[in-house]
């Protein structure tokens, strides 16, 4: 439904998004997880046709967002980071206007607006000016605006930001209820949000995709097997089978998107194979260029992104490695 290929966006000398690729299947909810400045908003702005990418391409519902922007936009609902409300309009007037520019036919408009207001629980604010709404209601009207024309694809930039815990739960329920008929990408800093709402997660940090997996697998990866990143200088040698033969090593595969000679080595849980690995490589006469545990980088990202969960007790306790994946 959504396909992103090698997307790169530069603002002058800053690379906000760096070679990002992922796919979202029809009916799926994909979580876009990353710390501040990771490039989530930038990626979403490209997907919604707000700005073009510097490189790479993106298709939404089968339409290239750059070559057929109107077709793609017609099928996309977007909740920007700050809900795009006009302070002088009442909620109903605002949604009526949005319905017009989203191409909702005039005989459906009224019923659509009312239905969406009920669904996002803003009906009691229908005659209130948007400028006088609380942050939580703004967010909900923003969501109402995004689903108004019943788009196939929903792009939601931090849909639960600024909501109280009860509203967060309501909003998550609403989003889960929308999945199925809708394909959803939502961004967040909050790890538990992802595990509760999303079927798959893209973790992004400093513009790069760090991991793509289901929340369960990601958690398992954190708690389970140890993965090492090994870079050896051994031209022509069969490194893979040599390393795989070591006791305790369960799997060896070439590291993705890295220089040749780089491998990911997985070992049994709780067993540290670094010493054996290093000795083996050196005795074979190969050069050991780099050896480090891989889970650390993933964990680092998790730690950064988990510190923001409002429902979690104290930020310190949420930040401990044991708690982070489970929270």
């Amino acid at each position: 439904m959504i396909e992103v290929q090698h997307l790169t966006k530069r603002y002058g000398r800053v690379t906000a998004v760096d070679d990002v690729s992922f796919r979202v299947e029809r009916g799926e909810i994909l979580g876009f997880l990353g710390p501040n400045g990771a490039g989530k908003t930038t990626t979403m702005r490209i997907l919604t046709g707000y700005m073009p990418a510097s490189e790479g391409r993106a298709t939404v519902a089968g339409f290239d967002v750059f070559e057929h922007p109107l077709e793609a936009k017609r099928r996309t609902g977007y909740l920007p980071e700050t809900p795009p409300l006009y302070p002088d309009m009442t909620v109903r007037e605002y949604l009526d206007f949005v319905a017009r520019i989203k191409g909702v036919s005039s005989n459906e408009r009224r019923t659509r607006v009312e239905a969406v207001m009920r669904r996002t629980r803003v009906s009691d604010m229908a005659s209130r000016h948007c400028g006088k709404l609380s942050k939580g209601y703004r967010q909900r009207v923003g969501l109402a605006q995004a689903i108004l024309h019943n788009p196939e694809v929903l792009i939601l930039d931090e849909p639960t930001a600024g909501l109280d815990p009860k509203q967060i739960i309501e909003t998550r329920d609403l989003i889960r209820g929308l999945a199925g008929d809708h394909t959803i990408v939502l961004s967040t800093h909050i790890l538990p949000e992802v595990s509760q709402t999303c079927q798959r997660v893209v973790i992004i940090n400093k513009g790069r995709v760090v991991a793509v997996d289901t929340p369960e697998n990601l958690t398992a990866r954190l708690q389970g097997a140890e993965t090492l990143y090994v870079h050896v200088d051994a031209p022509g040698a069969d490194v893979t089978s040599a390393l795989a033969a070591l006791p305790g090593v369960t799997r060896v595969q070439p590291a993705e998107m890295r220089a040749s000679g780089a491998y990911e080595v997985e070992s049994e849980r709780g067993r540290d194979v670094r010493r054996d690995l290093a000795r083996d490589i050196v005795t074979r006469g190969w050069g050991l260029l780099e050896l480090r545990p891989m889970r650390m980088s993933l964990e680092d990202v998790f730690l950064q992104v988990t510190t923001e969960e409002p429902a979690a007790a104290a930020p310190e306790s949420a930040a401990t490695p044991e708690e982070a994946p489970r929270a």
């Binding site: 702005r45 707000y50 109107l70 920007p80 795009p84 409300l85 006009y86 520019i101 605006q145």
Partner: peptide, 14 residues
Amino acid sequence: RSGTVELLLTSPVT
């Protein structure tokens, strides 16, 4: 300034 331009530019209007 208010960000509503994001609504206009991501709607199916030229």
